[in-house]
């Protein structure tokens, strides 16, 4: 016999506003290698078909299942019950629009912010199907991929103090996304363009440096490094007219993370 686990799960269905938000208790016997993916599906299929939550890949790749697990945002699919106490409390991620119980609308949030920061390669070049690909250093390709690994689960945004206070704060995820384009030579945007996108209180200057984003990132992306790099870029850009060239050059030299 495994442990008896007690789940305290936040319940609220916006389509039924007359039923107030509440916590509901479920109990489940723990089985070997049990993850929250297994546990929640067991509860839905065997105890309460009305329980709402999101899973997709169940392998830590797609970012669907971010939720607050005993007070800390994380991916439910790679959270093992053996690492948790007998009592497990689950809440939906804050900041995002609640769709029901543990399900939140990260998709629309990320689409909006992606549009805001123009999350694509800006180039005037046309694709030539006859031509060989442009060359790139493999180390740089790896660096870009390291920043491209974000799965947009929303955990960093949910853990962010600024995001809780500023509705339009773009979050560590979007700043990291721009840092990815900042180091990509295919993107022709320069510091002034990036400054226009994130050089304000809804961008890099809104960050209070609490760094919870970095703590909770399930992909261990170096978010605080990227915040620092992009903030320095934006700061230098904003004062470039009044500082001597040799200082400015020193400050802009730091363009990418060291592996």
């Amino acid at each position: 016999m495994g442990r008896e686990l007690t789940f305290e799960i936040f319940r609220y269905n916006p389509a039924q506003p007359d039923i107030e938000p509440r916590m509901q208790t479920y109990t489940l016997e723990e089985t070997p290698s049990m993850t929250l993916f297994i546990a929640l599906n067991k509860i839905r299929e065997e105890q309460d078909p009305t329980l709402q939550f999101d899973f997709c890949c169940r392998a830590g790749i797609c970012g669907s299942c971010g939720m607050v697990i005993n007070g800390v945002p994380g991916l439910a699919c790679h959270t093992q019950t053996k690492d948790l106490p007998d009592k497990i409390t689950l809440h939906p991620l804050p900041v995002f629009k609640l769709l029901g119980d543990l399900s939140v609308d990260t998709g629309v949030w990320f689409r909006n912010v992606g549009g805001k920061i123009e999350s694509w390669i800006h180039t005037k070049k046309k694709f030539d199907p006859e031509a060989q690909e442009e060359r790139m250093d493999n180390a740089l390709a790896n660096q870009i991929f390291e920043l491209d690994r974000c799965v947009e689960c929303g955990c960093c945004v949910a853990a962010c103090g600024t995001a809780r206070m500023r509705e339009d704060f773009i979050g560590a995820t979007a700043i990291n996304r721009l840092a990815r384009f900042y180091i990509d030579p295919r993107d022709n945007r320069d510091a002034a363009d990036f400054y226009d996108l994130i050089g304000d209180d809804n961008g890099v200057f809104g960050c209070m440096g609490l760094l919870a984003c970095d703590n909770v990132c399930p992909k261990q992306i170096p978010l605080h490094d990227q915040l620092g790099i992009m903030r320095r870029m934006a700061t230098v850009e904003s004062v470039k007219a009044i500082i001597p060239d040799f200082i400015r050059k020193k400050l802009t030299g730091c363009k990418s993370v060291k592996a």
């Binding site: 694509w120 390669i121 070049k125 694709f127 690909e133 442009e134 060359r135 790139m136 250093d137 493999n138 390709a141 790896n142 870009i144 991929f145 491209d148 990509d184 295919r186 993107d187």
Partner: peptide, 9 residues
């Protein structure tokens, strides 16, 4: 590659 995929090189 043109659109931005960081293929290994």
């Amino acid at each position: 590659a043109y659109l931005g995929v960081p293929w290994n090189r």
